[in-house]
């Protein structure tokens, strides 16, 4: 009998209108966190949990005094080159800071200035870029 009642209840729910109204409200649950929350309302997260699937990066560029003025494009991309997070024309002697958002699924960032190119991971939210490189060492 109990099973019949459950089946009947499911059938009624299934046939009900899909129209949403305030009846669809979910009463806040007092259920404590479980390892296998099956409903979104049951999830418990930290108070400051960031629901975004991206994070803000700050990039500091340390200018280098150059013998002659050198202007070129600083380009910040995802490691596959498909997303351009920043582009701008800058003097090599110019120090500046900028910010941009990076999707969580991106594993690496490339900062380039002409032939100078450096790779960064995405665990930290800061990039410190300078023009010093071993590429000119012989």
């Amino acid at each position: 009998m109990k099973n019949l009642m459950i089946i009947a209840a499911i059938a009624v729910l299934g046939l009900s209108s899909c129209k949403k109204d305030l009846m669809d409200r979910v009463t806040p649950t007092s259920k404590t966190q479980t390892q296998d929350a099956s409903k979104f309302a049951e999830i418990r997260v930290q108070e400051n949990f960031d629901w975004k699937t991206s994070k803000e990066f700050t990039m500091n560029v340390a200018g280098l005094e150059t013998i002659a003025p050198i202007n070129s494009t600083i380009k910040v991309t995802s490691d596959d080159g498909k997303i351009v997070f920043y582009q701008g024309l800058h003097g090599m002697n110019e120090s500046f800071q900028t910010k941009f958002m990076v999707p969580a699924h991106i594993k690496g960032i490339i900062v380039s200035f002409g032939s100078i190119s450096k790779n960064y991971g995405t665990l930290a939210k800061q990039i410190q870029f300078n023009y010093l490189t071993d590429s000119t060492a012989e």
Partner: peptide, 9 residues
């Protein structure tokens, strides 16, 4: 490295 960045070798 500063001089190397300015292309001295």
């Amino acid at each position: 490295s500063v001089e190397q960045a300015n292309c001295w070798g």
